[in-house]
Design a protein around this nucleic acid. Structure first.
Lengths: 193, 193, 193, 193
DNA sequence: CACTAATCGAGACGGTACGTCTCGTCTTCGC
DNA sequence: GCGAAGACGAGACGTACCGTCTCGATTAGTG
């Protein structure tokens, strides 16, 4: 069906205008209220130009998000894994406190009924960041700071799972202090000593 | 505006037919594909009869879910909090492996752009269950099985956060074994001993 | 596919608003420039309400035309068939000089690629009028004013064919005088006497 | 605006391929379904190459038609104007029974909303043929076969008007027999003798 | 024989309207 | 007078073409 348009002929100006418009509308009106039609109008672009290059509004906004945040800068490595975990988790919490959090919630929501988007969310956004984290944690394991018998992938889930829990379920507000404390709980465990 | 319909006049048969139809459609076609129109048709009911009593399809399905699963039976208390946590977390994971998981994902997705629904999700479903858990963990704290300086609400987040992480982000499949191990990690911490 | 909407439930106000808007737009902007979307907007109506009851903009405009012109009043019968033919042909020519002519040209144009519309044009507009004419001419034949060996249907074609020729091909402007003369030519023939 | 492309640099192969493709598509899919895009694709040509030399798909197809039918061969002159009229009218009717009729209907349809095309239809196709007819009829008038007080242009309308009436309105199928008879009616008139 | 300029194939672009879909409200009729 | 049935206004969807535009890559006729 799709005649596979030639990316070389892509118009830079339009491409960027679409990303910019998408992000601005999402920030202004809320993710759910954004429509492809509105993005096209705001970007001064034909709808077909969006559909030619993206399968859905979600895909546009995901790329816009990546375009805006730029390449993931990596995780800190001060030698103290506890401090690094706390710092980075706080970074995530703070980022989620901005428009980014709202937009990300919308993307995750759409991904529940759009398997392709779910995959793109992972490959384009989540997994690269998690990969960095796993590397950092692997180093900590090697340095004897963390248990070797716990998969670092699981550690990442333990660290960020509660953040997403609050973000998506809204049980409690995202709270940097709580985030710092959580790292200590994770490292030392919930058993009394 | 809304003439505040008198709940006494509510038709039991229609009410139940709507809940049943909603759940069946959600299970068969997937949450996102269900429409109020389809529920009404499947229940042999006018659309207005649904809109009179519920604000959205999500509200119908949430009530249908609660209607189906019945009142929350509470958490186990064998005296061994580790075993209880593992058992219950596994129960959740198993439940999420059925239609319930798919439907729940849909409800959480809708809640991202529907504050009222988000509130209902908490009060009608999540908080009652979490309240039970906090009570159980309070008992464990009192029994000296868990640290007293960690809010039990946070403990619940640590336990279930990673489950929701996988459920909603799809990084890895929900896995009962991993769930059991996670309880041990949480209790003993990630530091080498 | 089409669930066959129930005409009894049709909204009178909307129906009339659509017909009025269609005709006004056609007169103002020209038949070809009218769009279903514009009719809907001008009538303060949803597009679906048009598509529910008509298959195309042409069908709307045809009905609007019939609604406006009202039932065909019939043909004159003064006893002098020549005078009657001239009068009526002139009536047609004059009508075609108004918006009606422009709209009718548009409908005939659309009918070239829309068999259903072509049929509707005949049954809803052309044939009723031609039927009246054939009856009038039959009477003239019976009165000995016209040849009995020429089908009256053919006579009608001879009378109006040239009108449509000018209307649709634009070779020459529609001209009442020429119309009158043509009746004489038809009746007496092109041979010198 | 238009930089007036230099016809000398025109690519013969492309020109012919466009005409051929246009006619083939019109015959195969019907005039209305043909698009400039499809002609370009079928001719292996860029869209701009069509728009450089023609203002619309109708103009392409009109030229293709003229290219295919070749120069108009003129009207017969056997000395018997009745026979000649019948022969030629039948020729037209027969031609209209082929793809040519369908395509011609499409062109006339488009001309209703395209004044330029309407003009081209006359100058490139209709008027040359009518001119020949008028000449032939002038000769018949001079020979005393036809009335001198009827403009030959009007005679042509009387002869072909009914043909177009049937072609464009679809009241009855185009019928060679009826065509022959019509010539007799026209010559001798509709009055009983 | 290179040079230069316009045409060429290709197809992306900003637009417009299409006909469909679903939403949440409003209207009608039958029980 | 309630409720099923479903028409309604609204408006986004994703598609199809329009006519214009921007690309190299031919392809002429000129110098």
């Amino acid at each position: 069906m799709a005649p596979a348009p030639n990316p070389d002929l892509r118009n830079r100006r339009s491409h960027q205008a679409i990303l910019d418009a998408a992000l601005e509308l999402a920030a202004r009106d809320g993710y759910a209220k954004v429509t492809v039609e509105a993005i096209a109008a705001a970007a001064g672009v034909g709808k077909q130009t969006i559909y030619r290059w993206w399968p859905s509004k979600a895909a546009v906004i995901l790329e816009a998000l990546n375009d805006r945040t730029g390449p993931f800068s990596g995780v800190p490595d001060t030698g103290d894994v506890a401090a690094d975990m706390a710092a980075a988790a706080q970074g995530v919490v703070e980022a989620f406190g901005t428009d980014l959090g709202t937009i990300w919630r919308g993307l995750v929501a759409d991904a529940q009924s759009d398997a392709r988007l779910a995959g793109d969310l992972l490959t384009d956004f989540l997994e690269p960041r998690n990969k960095c984290w796993q590397d950092r944690l692997d180093a900590a394991v090697a340095a004897g700071e963390l248990r070797a018998d716990v998969p670092t992938r699981t550690m990442v889930e333990l660290l960020f799972g509660p953040v997403y829990y609050r973000l998506l379920l809204g049980t409690d507000p995202l709270d940097p202090e709580n985030t710092t404390a959580r790292v200590e709980y994770l490292l030392n465990g919930l058993r009394p000593r």
